[in-house]
Design a protein around this nucleic acid. Structure first.
Lengths: 224, 224
DNA sequence: GCTTGCCAGACTTTCGAATGCAGGTGGTTT
DNA sequence: AAACCACCTGCATTCGAAAGTCTGGCAAGC
């Protein structure tokens, strides 16, 4: 048996690390990803890094062109809007399906995920922003729980990828929209328990569009 | 200057080759992808192959687990239905947007793409199935043209990835639904030129669902 | 003064070989 | 005979170094 309890390959764990570093803004948009440098920073070989960067490239988090190496994908208002729109499309559809299929297990997941998120939102509201990553993780888990009864693994995976791209914009803008977002999360939970599709869709649209406008107001982006 | 006129890296062209081999059924679902074997078949090194397989993994065309290597992703009725449903969701949305935004350039692309597709459909109808890959490529290009005015590069890329997964099922089932599909393509073109959103959506839904049922009838799949 | 061609350095791409894991085989113990 | 353990083989994984490609600067020519 391996000593590493996680049973993960080096490539896998480094992949997660780099991915998180991009999403949470520790590797800024447009930054050149030189293999020699990364090799030192992440203590891996060049080949392994290339595997990882190629993977991130096909997720749209890393740009790679011809023989000129890799860099963190750039950001633009247009891309943010496209990302948000696609998230809305996927999440709305999955939400509607979940409202139809959800059973008691689903409701329990919802309540649990919302409880954790609400607790973290209290912490954030008190001005303690040191746990922003945990907060976003709970946000992620709540939205994932909302659509977890949609019945399509493919839809959930695709949504997750788009969500993470969207999340990066939120983190870059470092925007805490605390009270408004928390209220919307509560209302989303209520609508879900009532299976009120119409309200659920409207809330979600407002939630996402609100996030976009907030981020843009906080950190205007030029296109390109 | 390089001798290779395409200015493509070895990795890139091999990636396309393997991808096509999976989609067009030359590498069958579930088949183990042993690196040593692939190394000979595609004349590349192990590291380069791993880059490629990782990329295909994140597109859902290759399965990879822990320390047990890679294999061609399996197929199942459930996955086909999920793929078709997601394609429908994305393509319907993009189609609606295109109907709103499309200009004369877009119309010209449509007419051109449909012309090529219709010609190939004639060839197929005459019983000559030797050019199935070209036919499917024209089909791909026609549908891509239909949504090419949607205004979102992200949406188009995501759609393309899902479309290719769907296409693999069509190829595995080797199903030529010639006359029906050709008629539907013609009607789709007409609806697009009229910007008749309602009809466009209905046609697309019927087109995709018809494809699924046809494929399943031709080659029933067990789940898993 | 401006363009063009060439050189050096830095970096990416590609490779083949060393390392290490997983599952099977055969041998030993109860 | 069945269960267990230690080895062995066939791979996947990881690495460091060789080969190839781009960038920017400098010198020569127009």
């Amino acid at each position: 048996m391996s000593i590493d309890p996680s049973n993960e390959t080096v490539a896998e764990s480094t992949y997660k690390r780099i991915r998180a570093d991009i999403i949470f803004g520790r590797l800024l948009p447009g930054r050149k990803l030189k293999l020699d440098k990364l090799k030192d920073d992440y203590a891996t070989s060049v080949s392994t890094l290339r595997e990882i960067l190629n993977r991130l490239h096909s997720e749209g988090l890393v740009a790679a062109e011809g023989q000129r190496g890799f860099e963190v994908a750039g950001i633009s208002e247009a891309d943010l809007r496209e990302t948000a729109e696609l998230r809305l499309l996927l999440e709305t559809h999955a939400l509607t399906q979940s409202f139809e299929n959800g059973d008691v297990e689903w409701e329990a997941r919802l309540v649990s995920a919302h409880y954790k998120l609400a607790r973290m939102e209290q912490v954030m509201a008190s001005g303690d922003t040191s746990q922003a990553e945990d907060w976003k993780r709970y946000d992620w888990e709540f939205h994932q729980a909302l659509i977890s009864a949609c019945g399509s693994k493919l839809l959930m995976n695709t949504h997750a990828a788009v969500f993470d791209k969207y999340l990066r914009y939120q983190m870059v803008a470092l925007s805490y929209r605390g009270d408004v977002a928390a209220e919307e999360h509560q209302q989303l939970l209520d609508a879900a328990m009532r299976r009120d599709q119409e309200t659920g869709r409207k809330l979600l649209a407002r939630h996402i569009q609100g996030g976009v406008e907030h981020a843009l107001a906080r950190r205007p982006l030029t296109d390109g």
